[in-house]
Nucleic acid binder design. Structure first.
Lengths: 337, 337
DNA sequence: ATGATGCACTAAACCGATTCAACCCTCGAA
DNA sequence: TTCGAGGGTTGAATCGGTTTAGTGCATCAT
């Protein structure tokens, strides 16, 4: 089954290849009547442009790249990326651009992928996720002359346009909610913050608590499994013990909840629990988790829009993602006396 | 910054474009000395083949496609896909092929993507996931002349090569484990099985139970949320009540566990709990979940190997994925008297 | 010495689109 | 009537690879 090319369309419409190209791309140079005829012929033949030929002649690959560099342990435990991908796709669909994805392990592998893509012109641009503190990827991408946008705090994006979240506004919602319930000592469970958004959240949460006159205890599970907050027992033995705990995501909260229950404490009567991110599982728990709902889909879509603007020659600045909204569910309640 | 092309390499090496192509692709027609020189020149210039040009001239896009058609509700709740993707990538890396991913919503959108990809020659082949009972995609892909492999039961793959799992062997492990603990009545929580693997599991589990002389109750949560097994209370009110429950995945088990605990039952003393799939969260619970660990990574890798064979002109038959292994953890125990 | 064979290599065609220079019309103004 | 302007259309060049036909040269058998 031979594929139908622009030449076939030209023959059927009785014009030259060049005219067909003009007609199909909606540019001047053909009469309205001819344009109609060409469009009809193309439709009749079921013509779809050959991606490679288009890429070769106009110098763009019409695809953008995204590398997932995920440490093996965390696979399947990262809810947000799915939402990002959806949003990315939403925006790409209307722009005849496709998404090239590479799953790698390790920073070097990621950079190697970028080099390969840049030199082979496989992608027109990139969406960078999982921004880290002191991330060298923005710099590397500039050196490679690869347009990119970052999902993350502009502070660490080294000038690359980014989609950022107002973590402080998010933190304020949590803190305000807890304060209104009478909580004055709060714990935050999280490992060393290498990811920029985690760092930003830590800072935002601490600032917000300080402003509200709330004490924060930081718990760093010493275990090799950051999801498994073995620190919780110690925390609860504390004489000055916190009355609420904040987890980084609902999945980590699930593990934490199990530990808390194992100690014979009930939620929210003895201890309130909040999760910063949610994957959808939180609402299925008993009690359902109070959590911040982050619209990852919107963030992904905005990132792509930014990137497409950049590719179109604009010099876009960073843009804000919707601020996560606190969903109050059953896991938070009044602080115990 | 102009990109370096094969012409640049040719000039530096002092030979023609054609010779460079021969040398770089390891085919006869150049002397060993010249090949060395060309390779050196290419390395010096940091040459990487232009993907579009290569695709145009050899007629292959050197990428394979994968469409994720995910109903919005389930996003982030599907653990296995991440593992598949990893495996897919593992195998692709060594073959200079990239992965084009499309996230769509709806069957029609998925088929439209396939048409687009086929006519535009964007991908050389496809990996099809989430095979359903009476799936029409294998047929559609054949009509489009798009090589494909399926992750799922060959029974529903309509002749398309597939990577399948021995669900019966998997079920036997669960049943044997439960039987050895004295369980004689078991419940299975799951919604109507539209996905082929779910259907196969149901059948395998029932057959296996029958062979072991165990009664099975099927619970279909009536709620619009299949993850939230509201059927559990009814089940436990049953006079002839089951002593163990099987969930489709650990994430569904998390929700189920919460419900069970809400009823004042403890696991595994009053009720044993098993999950068929695991995302890694199961082991973080208290008690950690007894579950089948499925090597999705291996399955993904095998699918790609199959596809590459197919593209190379072989006519591969279906291949078996590693059988999931039961990991006995704390959520199963002796059946209560 | 002659022709046949084989090897290393070159030149040019080719893949399927875009784009640009050139050309042909027609129409209007001088 | 002639020239210029400008829109419609064509043909050819182009992108960067692969592939094929063909060339020049050395080697070998006759």
């Amino acid at each position: 089954m031979r594929r139908v090319t622009i030449t076939d369309v030209a023959r059927l419409a009785g014009v030259s290849k060049g005219a067909v190209s003009f007609a199909l791309n909606g540019r001047p140079g053909v009469s309205e009547a001819t344009r109609e005829r060409v469009l009809q012929a193309a439709a009749d033949l079921g013509w779809v442009p050959n991606a490679a030929a288009k890429a070769l002649s106009d110098g763009r690959s019409h695809s953008i790249g995204l590398v997932m560099n995920r440490p093996p342990r965390l696979h399947g435990i990262e809810p947000l990326i799915q939402h990002y991908l959806e949003g990315v796709q939403d925006e790409l669909m209307s722009h005849e651009t496709s998404l090239l994805i590479h799953v790698v392990q390790g920073h070097e592998a990621e950079l190697a992928t970028y080099r390969e893509w840049a030199h082979g012109r496989r992608v027109d641009g990139l969406v960078v996720i999982d921004l880290r503190v002191d991330d060298d990827r923005p710099h590397a991408l500039r050196a490679l002359d690869l347009p990119a946008v970052v999902l993350g705090d502009p502070r660490y994006a080294d000038g690359v346009p980014s989609v950022w979240t107002d973590e402080r506004a998010a933190a304020d919602q949590i803190v305000e909610h807890l304060a209104s319930l009478g909580h004055r000592q709060v714990a935050r469970v999280g490992d060393r913050a290498l990811l920029a958004h985690a760092a930003a959240r830590c800072a935002a949460f601490e600032d917000s608590c300080a402003a509200a006159g709330i004490d924060v205890v930081e718990l760093r599970p010493e275990s090799t499994r950051p999801e498994c907050p073995e620190a919780v027992p110690d925390l609860l033995a504390d004489p000055h013990r916190p009355t609420a705990v904040l987890f980084e995501s609902d999945l980590k909260a699930v593990a934490g909840l199990a530990t808390i229950r194992g100690l014979g404490l009930s939620v929210p009567e003895d201890l309130s629990v909040v999760a910063w991110d949610t994957s959808g599982i939180g609402e299925l728990l008993h009690p359902p988790l109070t959590s911040l709902d982050h619209d990852g889909r919107a963030a992904g879509a905005r990132a792509v829009r930014l990137l497409l603007d950049l590719l179109a020659g604009d010099t876009p600045t960073s843009v804000q993602a919707p601020t996560p909204q606190l969903q109050v569910r059953g896991s938070t309640g009044p602080a115990p006396a």
